[in-house]
Amino acid sequence: MEVTGIISAIIVGLVIGVLARLLVPGRQPIPIWLTILIGIVAALIGTAIAAALGVATTRGIDWIELIIQIVLAVIGVMLASYAYGRRKVSR
């Protein structure tokens, strides 16, 4: 993977993470850096899934790949919110 590919993956992951956070209803008690990380991981895994399904390379915008990435990011944000919400602060 080239440097431009890594940079574009980070930018796409950032956007996907923010979109996922907006799509999950309610307040998410997770830090923004975790949202971005979830978006980056979801973008990479979503691209791999789209490639395995044979829909990663299409003419124009890869809508199916983008939908897969967003769904994965939404699931990731929901799981992270659940995990952070269960943590108790002990004093």
Rank of each mutant, 00 (worst) to 15 (best):
M1W: 04
M1T: 08
T4C: 02
T4S: 11
T4G: 08
G5T: 11
I6Y: 04
I7C: 00
I7R: 00
S8V: 06
A9S: 12
A9K: 09
I11W: 03
V12I: 14
V12A: 15
V12N: 09
G13M: 01
G13A: 03
G13C: 03
V15C: 11
V15G: 07
V15Y: 03
I16T: 15
I16M: 07
I16N: 07
G17I: 11
V18T: 12
V18N: 04
V18A: 15
L19N: 03
L19A: 14
R21I: 02
R21V: 02
R21F: 01
L22S: 09
L23K: 05
L23S: 10
L23A: 15
V24K: 08
V24E: 12
R27C: 03
R27H: 09
Q28K: 13
Q28H: 14
P29A: 13
P29L: 11
I30G: 01
P31K: 14
P31S: 15
P31G: 13
I32E: 08
I32C: 02
W33K: 05
W33H: 11
W33Q: 10
L34F: 06
L34C: 06
L34H: 10
L34V: 13
I36Q: 02
I38P: 00
I38A: 09
I38R: 03
G39R: 10
G39E: 12
I40T: 05
V41F: 05
V41M: 05
A42E: 02
L44A: 06
I45H: 01
I45Q: 03
G46L: 05
A48L: 14
A48E: 13
I49T: 08
I49A: 08
I49V: 15
A50K: 06
A50R: 08
A51D: 13
A51H: 11
A51S: 12
A52T: 10
A52F: 07
A52R: 10
A52D: 07
A52Q: 11
A52C: 04
L53Q: 08
L53K: 04
G54N: 09
G54T: 10
A56E: 06
A56S: 11
A56M: 04
A56D: 08
T57D: 10
T57F: 04
T57S: 06
T57M: 06
T57K: 12
T58P: 02
T58E: 15
R59E: 12
R59Y: 04
R59G: 12
R59D: 11
R59T: 12
G60L: 09
G60S: 09
G60E: 06
I61C: 01
D62H: 15
W63M: 12
I64W: 01
I67G: 07
I67F: 13
I67L: 15
I68T: 08
I68G: 04
I68Y: 03
Q69A: 14
Q69H: 03
I70P: 04
I70A: 09
V71L: 14
A73F: 02
V74D: 08
V74L: 10
I75L: 13
I75R: 05
G76I: 06
G76A: 04
V77E: 01
V77F: 00
V77H: 00
M78P: 01
M78V: 14
M78L: 15
L79I: 15
A80M: 14
A80Q: 05
A80R: 08
A80T: 05
S81H: 07
S81F: 04
S81L: 08
Y82C: 06
Y82D: 07
Y82V: 09
Y84W: 12
Y84E: 11
K88S: 07
S90T: 14
S90C: 03
R91D: 08
R91L: 13
